[in-house]
């Protein structure tokens, strides 16, 4: 047994340890990485830029804290862009663990918009958070009929009819589009129910893992834009000119990817050496 064969039989715990070490080191040391912008991200940015102040946007925060690290940068950059432009934002959170987190994000963004642009964002006039109801598919269908059906009141149990910005806002017909940021399969409900049944323009921000699977919907026009994972968020941050966590995270990605590729190569070299000798791995 030579060096490479022994390497290819390496205990998985070494893989874990080396990976963890690379992540920690790259998190702690700073250096720059270049970023490319894809058209499917740009189309979301352009859509947001085209909206007139006072238009309504439905922002669906359907991820839960598990994918917070990956999804929060998108929520932050898009919601900051919307509120800074004076768009009115209707927010929902259709993941059972999500509402607490979404509320926290909303409050933080309201503060940061005020800090950066001096613009006071008023809850109930510029933004409303409807909260969570179980069974996302059903809620999405119901909102297409009337927001009041699944959400008689907002997250704080204020009746929708007594919230100023919801006056005359019945259902998806009254919003310019839905920007969905999600890490769950709820995106299928949005596509087949909200876009499919009610024809509302839909753009999605997905976890990196999911994004690849929604290109068919992009091509068939069921969604008009797509952001995938941290890379998508970094692209958006670059477009919006608000460098944030996503752009920082890219340098970690580059190095960890190289480590994993290295492991794959080691595994294959060991495999070929032992196969040439007639051994088995």
């Amino acid at each position: 047994m030579n060096f490479f064969e022994r390497l290819s039989l390496l205990d998985r715990r070494w893989v874990y340890l080396i990976l963890a070490a690379v992540v920690v080191i790259t998190v702690l040391i700073e250096f720059d990485t270049p970023i490319r912008v894809n058209p499917e991200v740009r189309s979301i940015y352009d859509f947001m830029e085209e909206q007139q102040p006072g238009s309504y946007i439905h922002l669906a925060i359907d991820y839960d804290p598990g994918s917070l690290a990956e999804m929060h940068p998108m929520t932050y950059v898009i919601m900051e862009q919307a509120l800074a432009k004076g768009l009115k934002v209707i927010m929902t959170a259709l993941s059972p663990n999500g509402p607490g987190m979404a509320e926290q994000a909303m409050l933080e963004i309201m503060d940061s918009v005020k800090l950066h642009t001096g613009k006071e964002v008023i809850y109930g006039e510029d933004i409303v958070f409807l909260g969570y109801k179980p069974y996302p598919g059903i809620v999405i269908l119901a909102m297409g009929q009337n927001y009041r059906l699944p959400f008689p009141g907002d997250y704080y149990n204020t009746s929708l009819d007594s919230i100023p910005m919801m006056e005359g806002i019945i259902n998806y017909d009254n919003v310019e589009g839905v920007i969905l940021i999600t890490g769950t399969s709820g995106v299928d409900f949005w596509i087949s129910y909200a876009n499919g049944r009610y024809n509302v323009p839909l753009a999605v921000g997905l976890t990196g893992v999911m994004a690849a699977d929604y290109y068919p919907y992009l091509k068939s026009g069921q969604i008009f834009g797509l952001m995938g994972g941290m890379l998508g968020a970094a692209e958006y941050e670059k477009l919006a000119g608000r460098p944030g966590r996503a752009m920082e995270a890219m340098r970690v990605q580059v190095w960890t990817h190289m480590v994993i590729i290295l492991f794959i190569l080691i595994g294959n070299i060991g495999y070929f050496i032992s196969r040439r000798r007639g051994g088995s791995v």
């Binding site: 009929q145 009337n146 009041r148 009819d161 005359g168 019945i170 017909d173």
Partner: peptide, 11 residues
């Protein structure tokens, strides 16, 4: 001109 079907709704 579209409204909702709930009679108690303003719309």
């Amino acid at each position: 001109d579209k409204g909702v079907k709930e009679p108690d709704d303003p719309n």
